[in-house]
């Protein structure tokens, strides 16, 4: 399922069970449980899904199906500073592709990857609804508008 093998600590397992219980261990709340778990762990490795599976009494395959269906959920850890480039139409026609290329070049990673030092990860997302600011780049929760390829170095510098 995932290339990353981790060992969950006792308190991690407790935390997942606690989250599941807060939603009444109701299988219909699966997506909410996944949201909360991802908030806590930063990603949803197979090991976390296994604990959820037990708690909600939902087959692991079904959970894996849901996790991989929705683009918001990830099974690989993101970098400390997740960089997301909006690839909505408005950003696209205003040159988001070139900005993305520049990030790829600067960080030496592809979309969906994390730098070796774990500091940055790169993803493209579909419309953050800030089309007036196109093209838009988000680093963590911070939004940068009207980004040109030349701005990329400066943006990354803020996080070094």
């Amino acid at each position: 399922m995932s290339s990353i093998k981790i060992e969950l600590r006792k308190q991690d397992i407790e935390k997942i069970r606690e989250i599941a219980a807060s939603f009444g261990n109701d299988e219909q709340e699966l997506i909410n449980v996944l949201h909360k778990c991802q908030e806590h762990f930063g990603y949803l490795p197979a090991e976390v899904q296994e604990v959820i599976s037990e708690a909600l009494q939902v087959p692991l395959a079904k959970i894996y199906g849901v996790v991989t269906f929705y683009s918001f959920f990830t099974m690989t850890p993101k970098g400390q500073n997740p960089v997301s480039i909006c690839m909505g139409t408005a950003c696209y026609v205003r040159g988001a592709e070139k900005v993305l290329e520049e990030f790829k070049k600067e960080l030496e990673i592809e979309v969906g990857q994390t730098t070796d030092d774990g500091r940055f990860s790169l993803s493209s997302l579909r419309c953050v609804g800030a089309c007036g600011l196109a093209p838009v780049v988000m680093v963590g929760d911070k939004t940068y508008g009207r980004v040109a390829p030349d701005d990329v170095k400066d943006i990354l510098k803020e996080y070094s």
């Binding site: 997506i31 929705y70 683009s71 918001f72």
Partner: peptide, 25 residues
């Protein structure tokens, strides 16, 4: 409130309902 998780097809009403039920949309 029910949260989506990034799937465009969930704007379709039957898919949206499945997603609210904790299923693939």
């Amino acid at each position: 409130l029910r949260y989506g998780a990034g799937a465009f097809v969930c704007g379709e009403e039957t898919a949206l309902i499945h997603s609210m039920e904790g299923l693939r949309g």
